[in-house]
């Protein structure tokens, strides 16, 4: 048995807005036609704060798995936005009202430490998983980490970032020492601080995205001694389908190997769409026991990460 991801749950707001509705409300930069050609169709907009969605996702997860809540050793809360790391509070002291601690209490995770991960954009949740893996490797007596990610864009915020349509949402997953599925075979990431300014460096980021992604993925496959022929499925982050087609070409994989259906259905859920997609791919029987699959995502900062797993 190896460290792996034993369970995943997620929450999306009940309301989805079509591209036309978003355009009508002036929440897009590109036209609906352009974004549809990039693979998007709608996005989810929440009127609840991020921590509320996070709490819902974590509760669903803990209710589903047969784990004693007091056996959770660590809670890692990830969010790309600063607002995701605060329980709504107007006073200055309220800045210290952290959702991780609140959730640890409310969920009854009596023995779990609680920390947050931020400043890595859409890679925050993947970084949480990475920290969980490292935590379990470093602490042989610990067995279980609950990772939760949530982000909700401010009301009225533009829903398009670098030609991607952004959804609010939350995801929770359990990283366990002896996971029966989704075993972590290799993980690799790179941060390139040169691109820290996502506004003035957006052209450079778009240009750097592909060659760096290719290198990170190649490193992970090499680390695991896995050839690309052994990869059954690619679990994406839900950025434009066209950019995925280019990246797939670059790494020598076919579009059929990409679980891309959620790009249209869910948009780019920055709180952790790779892991949302993993759950849906499993539910849709796209993975069989023993299948190797690759997850890749990018986050402002700029950060690239790939994880190779075995279902």
């Amino acid at each position: 048995m190896q460290i792996g991801i034993s369970a995943i749950e997620y929450v999306l707001p009940p309301d989805a807005l079509s591209l036309e509705e978003l355009a009508r409300d002036k929440l897009l930069c590109s036209s609906p036609e352009q974004l549809r050609r990039l693979g998007f169709d709608r996005c989810y907009v929440s009127n609840l704060p991020a921590e509320a969605l996070a709490s819902q996702a974590a509760t669903m997860l803990l209710e589903r798995v047969a784990v004693d809540r007091e056996d959770v050793d660590l809670l890692i809360y990830a969010g790309a936005l600063a607002s995701s790391h605060q329980v709504s509070e107007k006073q200055f002291l309220g800045s210290f009202n952290y959702p991780a601690a609140k959730m640890q209490f409310e969920l009854g995770l009596l023995h779990a430490g609680a920390i947050g991960i931020s400043q890595s954009g859409c890679l925050g949740f993947t970084n949480a998983v990475k920290v969980a893996i490292d935590f379990l490797r470093a602490n042989q007596s610990r067995n279980r980490v609950l990772c939760v990610g949530a982000d909700v864009l401010p009301a009225g915020a533009n829903r398009e970032i670098l030609y991607n349509v952004i959804s609010d949402g939350a995801c929770a997953l359990l990283v366990e020492r002896d996971s029966p599925r989704n075993k972590i075979l290799a993980h690799g990431s790179v941060t390139k601080g040169y691109y820290w300014d996502s506004i003035s460096s957006k052209n450079e980021i778009m240009a750097a995205y592909f060659p760096t992604a290719k290198n990170v993925i190649a490193d992970v496959l090499k680390q695991a001694g896995c050839s690309r022929d052994q990869v059954e499925l690619v679990i994406p982050h839900n950025v434009s389908l066209l950019s995925w087609e280019i990246l797939l070409d670059l790494i020598g994989l076919e579009k059929e190997q990409l679980f891309y259906q959620n790009i249209r259905r869910k948009g780019h859920v920055i709180a952790g769409d790779n892991w949302i997609n993993l759950k849906d791919a499993v539910d849709e029987k796209r993975l069989r026991p023993g299948d190797r699959f690759l997850s890749f995502n990018f986050g402002f900062g700029a950060n690239w990460a790939a994880t190779l797993m075995e279902h």
Binding site: V190, K192, Y194, A208, F210, P211, N215, D249
Partner: peptide, 11 residues
């Protein structure tokens, strides 16, 4: 220090 990646050679 910029760690700029070599352009990918592609089809």
């Amino acid at each position: 220090q910029r760690a700029i990646a070599r352009p990918a050679i592609v089809r």
